[in-house]
Amino acid sequence: MTILIIVIVAAVIVTLVYNRLVALRQTTRQAWGDIDVQLKQRHDLVPNLVETVKGYATHEKDTLENVVKARQQAVDAGSLKDQAQAENMLSGALRQLFALSESYPDLKANQNFLSLQTELAELENKIAAARRFFNNAVAEYNTAIEQFPAVLLAGPFGFKTEEFFEVATTERARVEAAPNVSF
């Protein structure tokens, strides 16, 4: 009788641990889906932005080509690591594009450009929030996989650690740097 109770308790523990890992993995996948939606919206916005800038900055061909190339690499990226690298390249190319607008007052005043710039800024904020949520879900999932007794079950049941969606070091430094104020 005690062996039956031990088997039942063990089965309940295995079931609870397995179901928790499945739930955490699904939360991580859902969080990635949220990021993916925002990134696709960003990718869809880039061609409109490039076309708007083309009319004003025709001799800035290299900058425009870099944005288009970076967008395509982001669209084509496969793994999470490749996606993160491609998105970081796209962010850098877009920063160059917006810096270019400083040289063209007519472009800077263009209503379509301003609208696209605002929309892109909103998307960047949504992507950052989604990335934080995703990375939190990944941390929770990875921690659960490494904790006892889940560590005994994770490998045999195919649970593997997930990668974080990281911002490039230069981007992180730009975001985290305190502004300099002088009078």
Results as ranks from 00 to 15, higher is better:
V50R: 00
V67H: 01
V46N: 00
P47G: 04
Q41V: 03
V68R: 07
K61G: 04
A74G: 10
N66D: 13
A57K: 12
G55R: 08
R42P: 00
L39Y: 02
A70V: 08
V46Y: 01
E51P: 08
Q72P: 01
E65G: 10
H43I: 00
Q41G: 10
H43E: 03
Q73T: 09
V67K: 02
N48E: 12
E60D: 15
H43Q: 07
G55K: 07
A57S: 12
L49P: 04
Q38F: 13
L64C: 12
L45F: 12
V68F: 04
A70C: 10
D62E: 14
V67F: 05
L45A: 08
H59D: 02
A70S: 11
T58C: 02
G55N: 06
E60F: 10
T58R: 15
G55M: 05
L49Y: 05
V50S: 05
A70E: 10
K40N: 13
E60N: 13
L49V: 07
K54F: 04
V50M: 02
K61C: 05
D44A: 10
L49I: 09
K69S: 15
N48Q: 15
K61H: 07
K40H: 14
R42N: 01
V46P: 02
A57D: 11
L39E: 01
H43C: 03
H43G: 03
E65I: 06
L49H: 06
V67G: 02
E51L: 09
A57C: 12
Q73H: 09
P47M: 04
R42G: 01
R42W: 03
R71W: 00
Y56V: 03
V53D: 10
V50E: 03
H43A: 09
V50K: 00
V50I: 04
Q41Y: 10
